[in-house]
Amino acid sequence: MITFIQQYGVVILHPIVLICWFLVYKNKSGDSQLTNFSIKMMMIFLLIFIIWDFIALLFSDNVSLARNIYLFFWVIITIYEFFVILKALFISLSFGKSQNKILLIILFILSIPVILAAILSHTKRTYNPINTTDFYNMILLLFGTVLILRNILSTGFFVDNIESFFIYTGFALYFGLHILASNTVSINFRYYWFFAQYATLISLIYWMGSVFFIWKIKSKHLF
């Protein structure tokens, strides 16, 4: 049972959480710009993971290809996370569309180490570059998420942003736990991967449970 949860728990939970958030998306009305953006981005985030899992399962027999698929999707999901957090930060700080060029420049700056790490991991046949950059990226993403949460809580329209609040607290949990899983000072490095998997599992359970609280708080009939 434990082996099953370790191997397929997160794979099964991703589509379930996606369905739950699709129900939230369908029933939303009069929400803020940040919430509209966050729900859409959250669903795409889950969808990328579902596609990743599907392709990983499909090519699991070919070890070399599976490794390259991992590196490719790792780059995609990391850059996507940077985009979501940066854009949400810009919206929460009320930056206009004129700042989109700056957003792209920041995204480009942040993407350089991610792509470099994947190339070095592939050419030098070591996971150290992506392990290292994942650690730094998670710190940066957590920092950005905390700033978004601060902006959500400081505005007077908390109920309009309730979905965003649950999405970004979930992200804070996800990034925070992944910092613990990917850091280089913890002990027993052999089990870091499983720690990271449980970190994802906990975040997915949180996102799934938060749908119930959104429903209760907003008193809407989701089901």
Partner: peptide, 13 residues
């Protein structure tokens, strides 16, 4: 340690 991936993802490479 370089043999063990600790970055995010659902299936360990």
């Amino acid at each position: 340690e370089s043999n063990i991936c600790t970055a995010q993802g659902d299936f360990m490479p």
